[in-house]
Amino acid sequence: MIDVVLKKGKEKAVLQKHPWVFSGAIEHVKGKPANGDIIRLLDGKKQFLGYGFYNDQSRVAVRLLEWNEDTAVNEDWFRQKVRTAVAGRAHILEDGSTDTCRLIFSEADYLPGLIVDKYADHLSVQVLTSGMQNAMPVIIDELNALLKPTSIFDKSDATSRSHEGLETSNVLLAGTHPPELVMVKENGITYGINIAEGQKSGFYCDQRDNRRLLAAYAKGKTMLDCFSYTGGFTLNALKNGAALVTSVDSSALAIETLQENIRLNSLDSAKHTAIKSDVNAQLRKFKESGDKFDIIVLDPPKYAPSRSALDRASRAYKDLNRIGMQLLNSGGLLATFSCSGAMDMETFKQVLAWAALDAGKQVQFINQFNQPEDHPVRSSFPEGEYLKGLLCRVW
């Protein structure tokens, strides 16, 4: 096994069990590991620190897996991590009202770069690191043995793969190809999920708890669901008696799937309007026409992929929320989210305070939204906490 030696004084984060080692912290590498190889990490005094994946093309040159020198990172190690992750989610699926969740969440489950989502009897995986790419034959074999899925489909089309020297992938890994729409249940609502062509891994199961929480406010209310995708917030609100829901998304496929989901659940389509449009442009149209809503959901894509983009992202979040606040009836509710890991909750609150000033509104934060338990956050890896949201009452 090749040794990677840290510069003097760069071992603090590793000793605190943080799994990332940046290239600038490395003093030298003894040998020539291939990208994705497992290496031994040493401090400046040549003392053992951990085992991890190595990649000299990535800013994160080492992704640590194991801190115990006596524990071999081998096939059995990977199988055990998969079994532990899957077992920890089993109770989410027990009552039958939900059959979709995240089974493996990358660093949170000690498998950096691996995401596995369960959609009924199909699995969708994203492989984002070269080391995990090397481990996939074992991972696939273990997932097949544990769950016997109808298919395992590779949705590794994230641009972050290029940072690891990997090409994108969108192929069947095991089983039979998933149908155009895989039927899943979440909170007792049925969704048609397009695994092969849908965004990310096919569905955003990280909003499961938040959809249910917000739906409790929807009875008899008018709601605007922005960046609605296939209708998670829309369907929960309609099921809970919303008077009228307007959904806006720029994707024709998402809108088409959303409308099919309304039919699947026998919801009243007369209480729903779908608009294919850029959200920011549509919000300006609503403002010009004087439209108002009781509840507005703002769930945009990631505006800040890194800390360097945070200032620009903060301005984008502020402008989006400013116009959202102006479209609410007095005392209305704004459910607003950020999935940018670089933006913490306190910064997000400050951005909303600026938006309120610009909009001439008074705002109360009455609840907080978080990612659900199948998206856990390791205490030593706070970067895993990416989804945050606020429920605001606006006057």
Results as ranks from 00 to 15, higher is better:
I296F: 02
A158K: 11
L253H: 14
G88A: 15
S266Q: 15
A196C: 13
D344A: 09
L114F: 11
S162C: 02
S106M: 04
E107F: 00
L235G: 01
L334R: 01
K361G: 04
K155W: 00
L310E: 10
Y51F: 15
L391T: 07
Q362R: 14
V182A: 01
T234L: 03
I296H: 05
K200F: 02
K219F: 12
E69R: 07
L123F: 03
P372C: 09
V29T: 07
K10H: 13
Q364M: 03
G188C: 04
L244G: 12
L6Y: 01
S308N: 15
P33R: 00
L114S: 06
G44E: 09
G113S: 06
G290K: 01
E66L: 07
V21R: 06
W20M: 01
T84W: 13
E75S: 06
F293S: 09
R208C: 07
V21L: 11
F53A: 05
L298S: 11
L123D: 10
A158R: 12
A72P: 13
A34K: 15
Q326K: 07
V125M: 06
Y51E: 09
N240P: 03
V394D: 05
Y51P: 10
V60H: 00
P149Y: 01
T222G: 13
K221L: 00
D109V: 06
F48D: 02
R307F: 09
